[in-house]
Design a protein around this nucleic acid. Structure first.
Lengths: 225, 225
DNA sequence: CCTTTTTTGTTAAATATTTAACAATATTAG
DNA sequence: CTAATATTGTTAAATATTTAACAAAAAAGG
């Protein structure tokens, strides 16, 4: 058994590298898969091979959070999945509101609600009178003017912005003023927020540009290299 | 004027770091903004400050592709925007097909078509008979069985996957067999493709987990640190 | 026309991340 | 019970990325 059995969260007091943080959801996905397939144990080298990284990196990453494996045996899939879930904060319920009930907003509600447990979209806000009052996926749509009032009376941790880019900053400001500390932003703008607010930006357009660029590079440098 | 005036694409023969590639779309966005505001010139330090990086990094990044600035003057916004667009491959028309006409698919078509020039979704494929035959945003929806035949007869560079995770790999295989070299994947699976095919994965769920984790960390280590 | 200022592109130093190596230890096999 | 094998967590080395420093050169000001 690991020497500290994962009792402690984040062993060292240094800041965890962003590169490590970004790999954790990937580990979670693969571990979920294995768990579903009822695989009981896996070694760092097997798991790393599946993911396409080195075993060293996997062990190094995990070591930021504790010791979850057993020498000579490897990791128990269910235990490691539980630990990674805990590290990711997936063991608690998180309340969200979504601003911008356009196509992307509707798609995200669906995605977020069905795919990931623990994240609950409690309310939707929009400025279109034709949408306000509707119920989308079981979630009520309120007028954007109600935003501050709603947030005052409900426990919400994350605000999701799926508005046009032009109003995203204004929405962010309003969320921040109402005490929201986490913003999941789909609008293609870099939001300016205070230091104590965390923004995760989903870079849809940027991702397509990266693909376009890589294709162009590949073409330029010869298809065989 | 820069000593080589950007005549050459990618000066050195080394591989361009992924970290650099990922920043280029950000540069593009800020330069577009400046261009729209009719700003004519900008120095590396001004632009870097806006973006929130160091001037050194900006100049270092650009130097991978050529010399676009002028000592004592800075960069001409229109020229640099043109160069960055060219590097990103935004100056050419790119044909795309989208597989999976669900909510996310429809949102992406809208997003990709309206927001970014150069990318044209030519056809949509789905297996739902109720959707097949429809026209979405001016784009015809065909039965998924038509995919290979369509790709044989049209010039398509990118396949977009917005199907459920369960069928994403199968769709990817079919795209690859039809000669597609670029895949823009929204399904939460790591696609296995040959080395000459480029996959860009939009990590929607993973991004939410990262946000969740950062919130949890912030909470744990005290709101003031 | 000359001097001062600005700002680039690049070389070098500092920092961060990844990979390799290995001692420690649990498991397995005989 | 002992020896051989497997595999972790961690320390050290290698690699990559970021930042700083600065010579070169253009622009601005007199």
């Amino acid at each position: 058994m690991g020497n500290e059995s994962g009792q402690n969260f984040q062993r060292r007091h240094q800041q965890i590298p962003l590169a490590v943080i970004k790999r954790l959801p990937v580990y979670h996905r693969y571990l979920s898969d294995l768990h579903q397939k009822e695989v009981a144990r896996i070694s760092s080298s097997e798991l790393a091979a599946k993911i396409g990284i080195t075993a060293s990196q996997l062990r190094q990453d995990l070591s930021w959070f504790g010791s979850f494996g057993q020498q000579g045996y490897g990791y128990r899939v269910d235990e490691l999945l539980r630990e990674v879930s805990r590290i990711l904060g997936l063991n608690q319920n998180i309340g969200m509101v979504l601003v911008g009930a356009g196509r992307l907003g509707r798609a995200i509600i669906h995605y977020a609600n069905f795919k990931r447990r623990g994240f609950h979209t409690k309310a939707i806000f929009d400025n279109n009178p034709e949408i306000v009052g509707q119920i989308i996926d079981g979630i009520p749509v309120y007028d954007i003017s109600e935003l501050e009032n709603y947030l005052k009376n409900h426990s919400i941790q994350i605000g999701v912005i799926t508005t046009p880019a032009t109003v995203a900053q204004e929405v962010a400001d309003r969320l921040v003023r109402s005490g929201i500390k986490g913003i999941w932003n789909f609008a293609p703008v870099s939001l300016k927020v205070p230091d104590d607010v965390i923004v995760e930006h989903v870079h849809i357009g940027e991702s397509l540009m990266v693909l376009s660029m890589k294709l162009q590079q590949r073409k330029a440098s010869g298809p065989d290299s």
